[in-house]
Design a protein around this nucleic acid. Sequence first.
RNA 1: GCGAGAGUGGCGGAAAGGCAGACGCGCUGGACUUAGAAUCCAGUGGGGAGACCCGUGGGGGUUCAAAUCCCCCCUCUCGCACCA
Length: 859
Amino acid sequence: MESKYNPHEIEVKWQSYWREKGLFETPEVTVSSEGGKKFYCLEMFPYPSGKIHMGHVRNYVIGDVIARYKKSRGYKVLHPMGWDAFGLPAENAAIKHGVHPAKWTYENIQYMKSQLERLGLSYDWQREVTTCQPEYYRWNQWFFLKMFERGLAYRKASFVNWCPSCETVLANEQVIDGKCWRCDSTVVQKELEQWFLRITAYAEELLRDLDTLKGWPEKVIVMQKNWIGKSEGAEVRFRIDGTDEDIWIFTTRPDTLWGCTFVCLAPNHPLSERLVGDKGILEGLKSFYGDDVTKIGHFTGYYAINPVNNTKVPIYVANFVLMEYGTGAIMSVPAHDQRDFDFALKYGLPVLVVIVPEKDNVPAKLEKAYEGEGYLINSGEFSGLHSSIARERIIRFLEEKGFGRRRINYRLRDWGISRQRYWGTPIPVIYCERCGIVPVPEEDLPVVLPEDIKFTGKGGSPLKESQEFLNTTCPSCGSQARRETDTMDTFVDSSWYFLAYCINDKDSPIFQKGPIADFYSSIINKKDSLHYWMPVDQYIGGIEHAVLHLLYARFFTKVLRDLGIIDINEPFLNLLTQGMVCMETYKCPEHDWLFPQEVKDLKCVHCGRPVLKGRVEKMSKSKKNIVDPDEMIQRYGADTIRLFSLFAAPPEKDLEWSSSGVEGIYRFLNRLWNTVLTLSTELTQLSGEVTASIDSGHPLVRLTHRTIKRVTEDIEKEFHFNTAIAALMEFLNEIQDFNPQSDGDRSALRFAIETLLILLSPFAPHIAEELWARTGHRDSILKEPWPTWDEELAKEEEYELVIQINGRLRAKIRIPQGLSEEVIKEKALSEPKITEALRGKEIKNIVVARRRLVNIVTN
RNA sequence: GCGAGAGUGGCGGAAAGGCAGACGCGCUGGACUUAGAAUCCAGUGGGGAGACCCGUGGGGGUUCAAAUCCCCCCUCUCGCACCA
């Protein structure tokens, strides 16, 4: 055999074939393409950081297999890709190297796109979306204006992380140990005017609809629930004794109201300053604010009156009370809250039990707070009720008496989107001295980023530097005005990009350059394709977006629904969060972290010292346990990399990269290549054309049906590609050992090989295409429908019956398919080994399980 | 502390309550080679000469039968964490 498997050669060839033939183009849909079999397969688009990493490879290969599989199952598939192109690294590159963020970004996109193509990913690049283009981000601005109209976008002062040296706001992730990640100066909290999106208006719906997301991992649902953090309870008004001022407290346990023995205020509560007077004391408390070990407090000298029983209780200012949650004031019930209990113990405050786990069984002394449910005591007319019932009744009582009201609190905060950065969407707002905040009129969109900016890394919003950008006229009164110079958080960009893919750029105004008159209608006119493709049927990406992106995108979907643009409640029907790509780490006492190639026989190649084997950790530059996709493609080809990243672990689990595992896959593909070409040459040499029709009872045909069933079910069942590929490996092993003797054998073999190639094609598309062509097929293997199986043929003609005595394996016999349970029992009992083992024993019972196993029970 | 998930050979990982360890890596032996690489063949959980016995983090239980279901405990990973 003269031909050798040369992945590089065939991969480049087929990639350009696919491109030229337009095989990945999305099928056109029309108004009448209602329903039908559509499948929107989407992977989280990357930030164009420079090069793709193995995490991207894994993510996109998983998506590609699903998209290719669904296509061959006859679905109309939308499988697009794009670029989350705004963001800080581009600006940092500008500061450091003087290259414009746009240039840096577009160069990265160009390179990364070529990398994705070299992996053989089946994207429709005509639908590519790049968020830093004005044609894209104009819509961010338009959505912002719509939200502003409806009060969903607003401006308010709030505390933010501020770097005094860089003069900019930092995201929480950019604060490392209280210091700026860029210049290492200490970050302070600063009150700033910022733009917010009112995501809290959708808190209840975002929470409730989580229950409709049946195709989402439980883990993500739970994380979002925690993040939204709903708690139901009541607000109660306590009068400050001797004044006409009130303190509103929030509690989720109104059933413990009678056990309140003191009240605590947050140090930054407006009342704290007035009641304490001495600012030094409050400052002292504030310095412990958020400290999660020490609980300290200060008695104000004032008392509050508990409205339900007119008890006077002392008012404290305490460091553990948060101003951001509830009302910034709490009623303390030490008997039933551990924090209050600790505090009471420290300051010698009374502990009054009002809930007991069992009726008429009052504990003499509490060792710790009892936080569970139980029956009320010492609670006036509510004594004797169970706490779960009492809660509801007491809330009604409070409302009737005017002591308080029902209240639901959420942990979710509004989304602060202002960034003092250049490389983002300009917020379309103008400030006029006469008119105040004036939104940019729709017809003036997009507000385009100015080009003439110097990137110094100093001085806050770079947009302030461009006089041409900054100075404008008020759209309302025409007088001198200035533009907003902050840009939007880049998470706005990714909150709706999946909608843009649904619209084909060729005939849609959405990507037209320059302002157009009516944005709204241009979207509405394209509503049909949005309606057809949405929601996303399968979304695939990392767990790191469990809350952030996935919550924002859900929020946007609901807002856009209320704007009448889409008619769905949730954007992503099914979500797959793939695991991380990990690798071993090594550390040399002399040379720190080592690349795998710097380690030989567990010794450092530089100094020969034995290295310390670290843990298996996520691939990262700092740990130097990274593998470069380019290098891998160069060495083994894309098909090997694809197969390995699918085979080494099921998609939702972490994947440990193993170079010998990659070798194993490469061996498999070589074996496939040699086997298919050898056998098919033999087939033609022996009989010219194989003419015999396929004998459905042929063992190889049965095996083929069995393999189709296994592979298909493994894909359908939560995308367990690892076992699907294992089934294909077994199949090849069998084919390899098969020695055709007759015409029947030869036609069965041909059927087996063709099926193997089709089943393999979503996973390793290049080699499948090449072998398909070399075994005499003219058209692309992509045109082949996914094979189906016959349930009867998928069963083995003969199979192994397992015979157990008392649950222990004693014998195996081969029996034909389709015997009755009675016959199976007889066969089992007449097996010599079994009669031998049963001698002198009394049979109590014989269980036949699924006609595959017999268990004989004796005494 | 709360919530979620996971503990299976030397390793990655398979197992509708029904043969534990598929498939792959690694390892051992053999063939082909002057030799190596590659490839091919055979073997590979532990113990035992053997029939057999023991094995899925530990301990109980349910069942004819448990990695799988129930109870208790241990360990690890992830998320949230003074949220009243």
